[in-house]
């Protein structure tokens, strides 16, 4: 089945105010940067964004915060972003902080048809408040609910016309999980190839989870913390 759409603007067609979006990436690594730029252009507002991080002030989801398009963020770590902090402390932005592993599993569960699960993460902390607790193997666990989204937007290294995806290195992170949890999943890829060009043994996300795929026009791939060692 051919999932190709011509460009980012067609790919994001149907995203409207008040929708819930999942956006892949960890920090600025593996984020759908072309789609984020397009969301700024579209000007859709009151978005609920599920993403591990919130970008930095002038890149990634930070761009959508600058334009105040986000009503609520569901994330695990949101440092490195002054505008985020300002909006959160002033109450303009709703924020739901979730342990990273629970966030990943909630996306996976949402895509896998599992409505909820118990995890030990967060027991005895403020994030367990109001959540059901059960003891398994002598240890307390809290109930966490699955997450889904109107649109999931993911970024892959390579993809084919069928929507099969391959990620590179640590840019995989949340992308395959969110791809499963979107009612409509959009994949932006660095390299789009014909069906049959990718080895089926190497596919990370099978095309069934992807409804629309396009090749991103340009990838900045910013590095947040450039750390190097020197040759001796």
């Amino acid at each position: 089945m051919n999932k190709i759409v011509g460009n980012v603007s067609i790919a994001l067609n149907g995203i409207e105010d008040n929708m819930t979006l999942m956006l892949g990436g960890f920090g600025l690594c593996g984020i759908p940067e072309n789609s984020i730029s397009q969301l700024v252009k579209m000007g859709v507002k009151n978005l609920t964004c599920i993403s591990n991080n919130a970008g930095v002030d002038d890149f990634g989801l930070g761009l959508l915060l600058q334009t105040k398009q986000i009503k609520k963020m569901i994330s695990s770590y949101v440092g490195e972003n002054d505008e985020f902090e300002r909006q959160m402390l002033s109450g303009e932005l709703e924020v739901d902080l979730i342990p990273q592993g629970s966030l990943a599993e909630r996306c996976r569960a949402g895509g896998a048809g599992i409505p909820a699960f118990f995890t030990p993460a967060g027991f005895g902390t403020e994030i367990a408040e109001g959540k059901e607790v059960r003891i398994f193997n002598g240890k307390p666990h809290i109930l966490e609910l699955a997450l889904t989204a109107d649109f999931a937007i993911v970024k892959a290294w390579k993809g084919d016309t069928e929507g099969n995806l391959i990620f590179k290195a640590a840019a995989r992170n949340f992308n395959p999980l969110m791809a499963m949890a979107g009612k409509i999943t959009i994949a932006e890829v660095e390299e789009l190839v014909p069906a049959g060009s990718l080895d089926p043994n190497q596919i990370h996300t099978p095309g069934i989870f992807v409804q629309r795929i396009f090749q991103g026009e340009k990838f900045q791939k910013r590095i947040e913390q450039r750390t190097v060692r020197h040759k001796v």
Binding site: F26, L28, C29, R226
Partner: peptide, 25 residues
Amino acid sequence: EDPDLINAGKQTITALPGASFFDSA
């Protein structure tokens, strides 16, 4: 440096022989 290869502190790193990559779940 490879922007696709970072650690949890978002620092650029390398992968040793025998390394593997996987999703967050």
